[in-house]
Structures are given as C-alpha cells and as structure tokens.
C-alpha cells in the first residue's frame, strides 16, 4: 500500500513537472508576444544576400510594412525593389492565429493580383535559406511549447509547429528574458528531426525604448552549407499605417 502511494506521488509530481515545462514554455512565448505588443505599425528596408557553398553571392532588396493586429495575426506587405525584373512585385499577407494564412501577389508586368494557395509555406523564400514560415509573423497559436532550459538571462524553448505541412518537426528558440524576450537564436530541425538550419540574430537596437529589432539575421543551412543574410535598415515606427494600407487595392498601388 505504501508502495502504491509512493508511486502515485512520484507520478503526480512528474505529471506536474511535465505540465509545468509545457506551461512554462507557453508562458515565455506569451511574455515575448506581450513585450513586443503595441508597436502598431512599422516599415523597414531589407537587403537579402544569398551565398552558396563556394561563396558566390546574389542580392535582393525589399521593403516591408507591418501592421500589428491583436485579435488576429499581423498583416504585412513586402515590395521587391531588386532584381530589376521583379521590381515592384509585392506580396500581401494576412497571418491568422488559427488556420492557413492568406496571401496575394501583385505582378506589375501584367498588372494583376494573384492569390497564392498558401498551403505551402515551407519552401524557400525567393531561393533563400529562409522559408516563408520563418519570416511570417510569429503568432503564439502556431506552435506548442516546451521549456527546455535557462542559462543566465537566456531561456531555451522548444516549439513544435501545429501545421502538418510545416517543413520542421521542431524549433529550438533562445530568448533573452532581460532584453524584452527578444530572439537570440533559432535552431530548425527538419522532418527527420536532424538539425537543418541555425538563425542568429545580431546587431540589436531598441526602438521607442521598448521594441528590440535585430539589424542582421544570419541563416546558415547545415545540410547544404548555403547561407542567407538579412540586413535591415531604416526602421520606422512612426509611420502610422492603417488597414487601408493592407488591401489588394493598396497592393496594386504600391507595386506600380
């Protein structure tokens, strides 16, 4: 009898701990979301540099506009400035907390807006090492969480994507809890649970005394040895965009 009681106690304790690690993970993700809340809207210029194994490079430049929404996922608009033959091509994305995102693309060459079936968001974004899912708004609901460890101010949380079409089994995210739970590093594990890529955030700057933004994202693919570097410049948090700036009409206007 005593034995059974003991086992029960052990099991309950373990159960509590398991729950705790998941809850703790979720708690951290929510804290990070909370810390970044209230930026309303921003624009930023982005230079994307693709490097292959031999160090050959290729560049693209883009402008991104983001509108913060609280009841659903953020809306974003990306405009390509170069290469020349895709200049003006723009994408409009409505991320959703639950279900597939909506995405449209404006093609200036035919002056038409095309809706993209967005079941596939795990593929490389314009040939880079970033998948569309790596760049889209990080909504809390898109993952389940598990707290892994804490080292000083750094907290590591495992995130498992909810979407079955994701290219990953899990991501290991390192937050900096002293710096507004900003991301320091993300490790991506592919479908066979092998380390695929590492994303390092660097050159952080704080805007409006609250919002941490890294000026450099370095994504290294360990399997192909290719690398993509994103360099952000001219962050603007005072632009004060509204929903009207994120419609198909706006998409057409911006591109042409």
């Amino acid at each position: 009898m005593k034995k059974i009681v003991f086992i029960l106690i052990v099991l309950i304790t373990l159960g509590i701990q398991a729950q705790t690690s998941e809850e703790l993970g979720l708690q951290i993700a929510k804290a990070a979301e909370q810390a970044d809340l209230g930026f309303n809207s921003s624009t930023v210029n982005l230079k994307m540099t693709l490097k292959n194994k031999n160090g050959q490079t290729s560049e693209r430049s883009l402008t991104t506009k983001t509108l913060e929404l609280t009841d659903d996922g953020d809306k974003s608009l990306i405009v390509f400035n170069s290469p020349k033959d895709v200049k003006g091509t723009s994408t409009l994305t409505f991320t959703h907390k639950v279900g597939s995102d909506d995405q449209w693309l404006f093609l200036p060459s035919i002056k038409r807006v095309k809706r993209i079936s967005s079941n596939n968001k795990s593929g490389p974004f314009v040939g880079s090492e970033f998948a569309y899912e790596d760049l889209s708004s990080q909504e809390v609901e898109k993952y389940t969480y598990k707290f892994i460890e804490e080292k000083g101010s750094l907290v590591v949380v495992e995130q498992d994507p909810v979407d079955p079409k994701s290219g990953y089994t899990r991501r290991l995210v390192t937050y900096n809890k002293d710096k507004g739970y900003r991301f320091e590093k993300v490790e991506f594990y592919d479908r066979k649970n092998a380390l695929l890529k590492t994303l390092i955030y660097s050159n952080y700057k704080i805007y409006k005394n609250k919002f941490w933004r890294a000026a450099t994202f370095t994504m290294k693919n360990h399997q192909s040895n290719k690398e993509t570097i994103l360099e952000f410049s001219d962050y603007n948090f005072d632009i004060d965009l509204s929903e009207e700036d994120f419609t198909q009409v706006a998409l057409k206007r911006i591109g042409s």
């Binding site: 091509t89 593929g123 490389p124 040939g127 569309y132 479908r191």
Partner: peptide
C-alpha cells in the same frame, strides 16, 4: 519581367524540399 515575376510567384508556392 513577366517570366521573372511568374517564377517568383511559382517559387513562393513550393513546399519544403520541392523547390
């Protein structure tokens, strides 16, 4: 421009590993 933009659109639509 058409060719480049179609390709961009198509590439955005491909899933992981089938790029």
């Amino acid at each position: 421009d058409e060719a480049a933009q179609y390709l961009l659109l198509y590439e955005l639509s491909l899933p992981f590993g089938l790029d």
